[in-house]
Design a protein around this nucleic acid. Structure first.
Lengths: 228, 228
DNA sequence: CAGGATCGTAACAAGTTTGAAACAGGTCTG
DNA sequence: CAGACCTGTTTCAAACTTGTTACGATCCTG
């Protein structure tokens, strides 16, 4: 289970985030100041997978804490900044510190959940752990890190969506994925795209991979799969 | 099939939601006031899987109804709040009551559908789904995740219905299932399909699994079973 | 800002799956 | 042994799924 540290000096915000994040299946710890958060972060007994950090706080600001985390603690902990301000300048500051996302108040819980999910998905996919770096089958090679693909030695110019779909299918080769599962995985929860859209991308993929399209199979009622 | 209760005092909104949700395969009941909705909810003859609730209504407000549902009725019914307002304060209220989602008017139908789908997915996944991943007996192997089947190493091209029936029977091998039970499980509660239809699917299954059809047994008055 | 790439939706054309009906055969019972 | 009842199988049309093309919107890039 993922553990999230929420830092905001408004108790209301902490509570609503805690309630909803726990509802969503995360473990949540909250702090009402950057100083308190720092203490929690330095505690070696507990590690965190994500930090949700208010920018404007009395005492140490969110930015200052973030800077400390990146420089002094030398940590890559993903950070989501919360802020009431919404100027371009602020956005730049948030990201230049290596923060992974940026949410303006007032925010919707959906937005927060979606961003968090996206971040975890991102960091999962960056992990080399367990997951192969290179998917290979039937002359088709996906380099997941380089984001390149080739077929029988020839480079394939796949679009992002095409790459992601192929990645998903090849990664669990021989298993069928419903259009809904593909949407969830490739588009994420926050998109409102028709399921038929998947078909179109599959068609485009098949066109690009030519004869190998034979292994990109569909089955009525089940969805699509890559036959290894 | 999922039943959704839509509550909005604007008849237009009700109709548009009803039309589109029914299109998407849900059963929809609508009410034009919180009072009317409460009556429907208290009616024991009909249960609902989701409530779409306008916040601003004459008479009892959406929030008041939600509070009643959570406290007086002690129900965990998922609620999607509809509201024209979009202030942080409103968000707080919506969520603090345990509502599961929040959509601001004007909304897009696709957004609504995506949210509903997400909610149902969430509640499904909380269910003690837990079961074996792979069913295996008599040389027949069902991979429930990959949705594939094989017999003595040979791939079986089962249709969705065939797969579901076999899944049901093999999962509780040696037990007889009446045609009614099979219909309920595979087709769902609200389908108007003749029981004899099951026979036809069983026949098709037997044809596909050849000699193993011997273990797909029927018994007059009891129905069908898989003999492990 | 023009041009191209990418993406999402709609629409139509196959292709498959499914459901009902009809008939055939078997078993049980009186 | 006749008749009722149950199950197995075939056929056909309807319903649903999928493949594909076309088009417009959007985003990126020079």
């Amino acid at each position: 289970m993922k553990r999230i540290l929420v830092v905001d000096d408004e108790q209301d915000i902490c509570e609503i985030l805690q309630f909803n994040l726990e509802n969503a299946g995360y473990e949540v710890v909250s702090a009402n100041s950057a100083e308190q958060a720092l203490e929690l972060l330095l505690d070696k007994n507990l590690s965190y997978d994500l930090l949700i950090l208010d920018v404007m706080m009395g005492g140490m600001s969110g930015y200052q804490l973030a800077r400390k985390i990146r420089t002094e603690m030398n940590s890559q902990l993903p950070i989501v900044f919360l802020t009431a301000k919404n100027t371009e300048n602020d956005l730049l500051t948030g990201f230049s510190l290596g923060g992974d996302d940026y949410i303006a108040k007032p925010f919707s819980i959906q937005e927060v959940l979606a961003r968090i999910k996206a971040i975890f998905r991102r960091s999962e996919s960056n992990k080399p752990s367990g997951d192969e770096e290179i998917l290979q089958s039937r002359g088709l090679i996906l380099n997941r890190k380089a984001k390149t693909a080739s077929l029988d030695g020839e480079t394939l110019a796949l679009t992002k969506k095409e790459f992601q779909i192929l990645d998903l299918l090849m990664h669990s080769a021989d298993s069928y994925f419903t259009r809904g599962q593909i949407l969830d995985s490739v588009w994420g929860d926050e998109s409102y795209v028709l399921e038929r859209t998947v078909d179109v991308h599959i068609a485009r993929l098949r066109k690009k991979i030519g004869a190998a399209g034979e292994y990109l199979q569909s089955r009525p009622g089940f969805g699509y799969r890559w036959l290894s």
